[in-house]
Amino acid sequence: MTNFTLPNAKHYFDPLEQFDVIQLFPSISYALTNLTLILFLNLLIFGFLIYATIYPNQSHSTSPSVVGDLVRNVYEMLATLAESNIRLSKQVYFPILFYIFLLILISNLVGMIPFSYTVTSSFVFTFYIALALFTGINLIGIYQHAYSIFAFGVPTGSPLILAPLIAAVEFISYFSRIFSLSIRLFANMMAGHTLLKILIGFS
């Protein structure tokens, strides 16, 4: 049979190799992997974007700040989104939307850099985000509405005799939101990057 003499032949032919989580310094830290490293890099980029928006460079005050305009445009886009979707007089939940959007966007875009790592292509990360947001949203609902939070289980106008059946179906669909939310993001990123690597391998 064929005998590969290359030391790491897997690294040249496997399009799924880019999703491996590697421990960078196993002797020093157990938890420091390429995933956490790139995640901290993403958070640094996020912090830089916010800092550059709040404190623009004073020496070039006549020229517009490119980063600031970019972040401000994203802010206004998300503000209109929140205005149209969340029917509250005060948009108190806007900051979490802004933070999640920028974090996922930066993670996706940093993943496009060759030899980088796409944090959102690992299921544990997207699942954690979706689960944490779902738990937090439900805690807010329980805090504000107490037991009447379970009103989502029975839509208005449904016949009372069908209520147990509808409640069961609604509960299943309600909890499958976590999986639909996380698997959509993870599968899109993973499929896209695998396809890119395969297409690049043809050249």
Binding site: L97, N108, G192
Partner: peptide
């Protein structure tokens, strides 16, 4: 390659839209 950038932005947008819908579901009960 360009498609991948579009997907990257679209997925972040979709995620935020769905989260805002879920927040609306819970905060504004019918």
């Amino acid at each position: 390659m360009g498609l991948e950038f579009v997907i990257a932005m679209l997925q972040a947008y979709v995620f935020v839209v769905l989260i805002s819908l879920y927040i609306n579901d819970v905060v504004v009960l019918h």
